[in-house]
Design a binder for these strands. Structure first.
Lengths: 196, 196
DNA sequence: TGACTGACAGATGTTGACCTTTGTCAGTCA
DNA sequence: TGACTGACAAAGGTCAACATCTGTCAGTCA
């Protein structure tokens, strides 16, 4: 019996573990509280509803997806190389999770689908990362002029086929998927790159 | 009581009408047979299973989607204009159905998702249409050199966000969607177009 | 003779009584 | 005093008996 005070972080950890073990359908607030050896009423002192708790778990998880991408954004080197690597890493990350932990992937996709807010924050974050690489490329004279925000968003949307969770069924064949992503990236980069 | 012989076409018509009226969950083979005033056993003389019947209805419906696009492919005029119009018409068609007949849209999406074959034929057909416009553009010196099949497929995939049924939730705001599609199309066409 | 029927077995859905879970809140304890 | 408990009402989920549907096939009818 721990004497530590109950924190939101501890609840998120327990909730994520429970979701991994039982899946979204079989995870109750009581399960989460039991793992923490508190009553389920205590969980409600930190999160206003079960939905809010699940969204918080998902938001934290999505943040762990976009954090490694930040390295590619801030790394030195040509913007075209970084943009290509950034999209490839984003796609590879999502596809790896879908392949290796399909249930967990499905869980988080379901929750994100149900809550516009959580998904929107994640998408905005990604679009911003892409926009910053594009801005670098324009500043360096590597890309043609344009609004980085619009172009970053366009890059994200044009590659949706390869990272949007709703299209995970389309990733069944990794070889085809990689070749297709290469073709789309080449098309896009050609569209961004300044001639000469 | 009709003396006409029962045809596959008549069954498809009745099945589509039943799907429209009752939805996919509530449409039984018996319902379809009843509308035709035959026993459900007769339907099985034309289609080996309920799944095959539903797939045939869906295939016919998808063909009605891609037929009007053919006009844009064969129409005279610059390839860039036609490619832009083609994607816009494809997106507008799918989005209009999703908006105006959400249940029917959901029905056909569900069936197509369940049967790789039907969906693959449709996608291949669309990729081929795009490839033909790209080939025209290359032949006319309007686009840079490249494999039309690869580029056509890339165009289709890069615009998936705007026409893939699995992403219909993302079309909620038509104004944003149109602006986003414009940005992606501009990016892609810039990538295809020969400088100068 | 061959398109069609209808009775049938097994699979799949539906229903409603029962049970678990969510979310609240007055009360306890340190 | 404020973090925590646990009993509770309402909402939602579970399960087994019941009903419908799918797919087959021997038999009918023109």
């Amino acid at each position: 019996m721990s004497t530590e005070p109950l924190t939101s972080e501890a609840i998120l950890d327990a909730a994520e573990a429970a979701l991994r073990r039982f899946g979204p359908a079989k995870t109750s607030v009581v399960d989460v509280a039991r793992a923490l050896e508190v009553s389920h009423g205590s969980v409600y002192r930190h999160f206003p509803s079960k939905a809010a708790l699940r969204e918080a778990v998902t938001a934290r998880w999505l943040e762990r997806v976009s954090a490694p991408l930040e390295d590619v954004v801030t790394r030195p080197g040509p913007a075209s190389r970084r943009l290509r690597d950034w999209v490839a890493l984003l796609a590879a990350t999502k596809q790896a999770i879908a392949r290796d932990e399909p249930e967990l992937f499905e869980t988080f996709h379901q929750i994100a689908t149900g809550s516009r807010e959580v998904a929107a924050v994640h998408v905005d974050h990604l679009a911003d990362q892409a926009a910053r690489i594009v801005a670098d490329g324009i500043a360096a004279g590597e890309f043609t002029d344009g609004d980085p925000a619009v172009l970053g968003r366009a890059v994200l949307q044009a590659t949706a086929r390869f990272h949007h969770p709703a299209l995970s069924r389309e990733w069944a064949d990794p070889a085809t998927t990689t070749a297709d992503l290469d073709a789309v990236l080449t098309l896009i980069l050609h569209g961004l790159t300044r001639p000469e």
